[in-house]
Design a protein around this nucleic acid. Structure first.
Lengths: 284, 284
DNA sequence: AGTAATTACGAGGTACGTAACAATC
DNA sequence: GATTGTTACGTACCTCGTAATTACT
């Protein structure tokens, strides 16, 4: 007895005739007839009553069908589990304190493994560490190397904040700026910038922030509005625009070094990616 | 994915090496190696971690194994059910008011269908009818044709009672006897004779009966003891013996006509046997 | 050396499709 | 006459076993 025969039994029972079932199964009617006969021989019972040109499921057939459906349902569950497992194996969950490192990770990983699914989450530093420890993410990105022995880390990249000044603005021609000079002004900011929100609030206590949570809309507004905004030196950051100048901010708080973190006991495909990204960074 | 692969997975997991599992499965190691690889390809996951010459089941493998065992357990239940069904199809349950008709049925049926299992039960007439009606037996044997439309019947055979008189007994040379002449004497009787017990008690109210429930022991005693006993003209009745004479009893109560009964809606294999026995009787 | 898994190659068996047949609607 | 299931026949594919290869103990 094989699963294929049980799948066929199920289809025959549902379609009523061998012809219809064979069409559905993409095999010839005769092949299906023989396959059914083999199943019946194997079970030692006719599963269908035959009149010269028709089949009618009988008591034995219904019994077989019941069992077959239990078995096929379990097979389905097995396949579902494995599909989930396969998807899980292709998915890298990243918890980061800012979006730029997740963009960097994506570009590096997808270059080598284009089918990988990257699931980024921007959270605060404590939550990033918590997710790493409880296994709900594969990679974490923090601003300082964690001192916990169960976590490994290295420096992933640095990011520097720039004021993104529209043409015609009074600050447009400056070569550099400080937070002190920017405080009290009004800024358009993207909502998903993670720890940078804290930097803004700490360093620009009197500034006004117009927060746009949608990245796409934010980028459109950068092009069209005259509000001051921020950008960074991350190459994946698309908030620069020809109508604006990105002016570096000189304060130490405008610079951050990101650390890529992983559990020491991570699964192989995760630690492989961890090493891949490290070797890529070392080249730069 | 096929059941054979799951059976193999189970054996590989239990035996630890392909070689041992292959020996157990009576296939070559290479065939098993390829079959396992096909399963892994189908599921999209390695089920075993490989070091060049060893297998070690991994997380995916254990997941697969869990499902496989559920499926194989259900397959086992299915086979058990069908084995029971097959046995049931080969079994004819007969409820009879006396043993002789069941012997006759056995000899007729087994001649044509030697693999048939005949399960006789000797009961009183009411119970025989009840079993027929509630489906707990396939054939019934009664002394009168039932008048119920859901039951069909025909005359199966007649049986006549004989006194089985030991050599030297005062009745040994008689050509015939009546119950009245036998009353008050002591008889050795087999316990499983059904309605004949009632005949004895009704027709021989003052006789003594030594009842032997075991047929084999009874037959031995017939040969060795000097007690009067009974026998009948049924050819399958082996209680005749050269040291005794079977003397006919002339009373009407010493003769019975058995009727073979079956449900009108009996299954095909039952009604086929019913017809077979009838045609056999008609020849005689 | 011995054991174990993978890979190459040739062979055999099995199940397939086509087609002819039989029977029913 | 159209549809349905069974049977016969030739073929193609698929899986098997043997044997060579590689690696680990």
């Amino acid at each position: 007895m094989e699963l294929e025969q049980l799948r066929q039994l199920d289809v025959i029972a549902r379609y009523g005739t061998l012809q219809a079932a064979a069409d559905r199964l993409h095999i010839s009617q005769s092949a299906l007839s023989r396959s059914l006969k083999r199943l019946e021989d194997d079970l030692g019972q006719q599963l269908f009553d035959r009149t010269r040109n028709s089949l009618q499921i009988n008591t034995s057939g219904r019994l077989a069908l019941e069992h077959a459906q239990l078995i096929l349902a379990e097979e389905r569950r097995m396949r579902d589990d494995f599909n989930a497992l396969a998807k899980r194996a292709r998915t890298v969950r990243v918890a980061s304190i800012a979006p730029a490192p997740t963009w960097r990770l994506s570009s590096i990983i997808l270059e080598q493994h284009p089918t990988t699914i990257i699931e980024p989450d921007v959270l605060d530093e404590a939550e990033v560490e918590a997710r790493l420890l409880n296994g709900t993410c594969d990679f974490g990105v923090t601003s300082t190397a964690p001192r916990i022995p169960t976590l490994t880390s290295y420096e992933l990249m640095t990011e520097s904040l720039y004021a993104n000044v529209p043409e015609g603005h009074v600050l447009y021609n400056r070569e550099s700026l400080t937070f002190a000079e920017l405080d009290g002004l009004t800024f358009l900011v993207y909502g998903g910038i993670g720890f940078w929100h804290g930097v803004h609030e700490r360093m620009l206590p009197f500034a006004q922030f117009v927060v746009q949570p949608d990245r796409t809309i934010f980028l459109q507004q950068v092009r069209t509005s005259q509000l001051l905004t921020f950008t960074t030196n991350a190459p994946e950051n698309t908030s620069r625009h020809e109508s604006r100048r990105a002016i570096p901010i000189t304060d130490a708080e405008a610079h951050v070094t990101y650390h890529l973190c992983m559990r020491t006991d991570a699964q192989k495909h995760v630690s492989d990616l961890f090493a891949l990204v490290r070797s890529y960074c070392a080249q730069q």
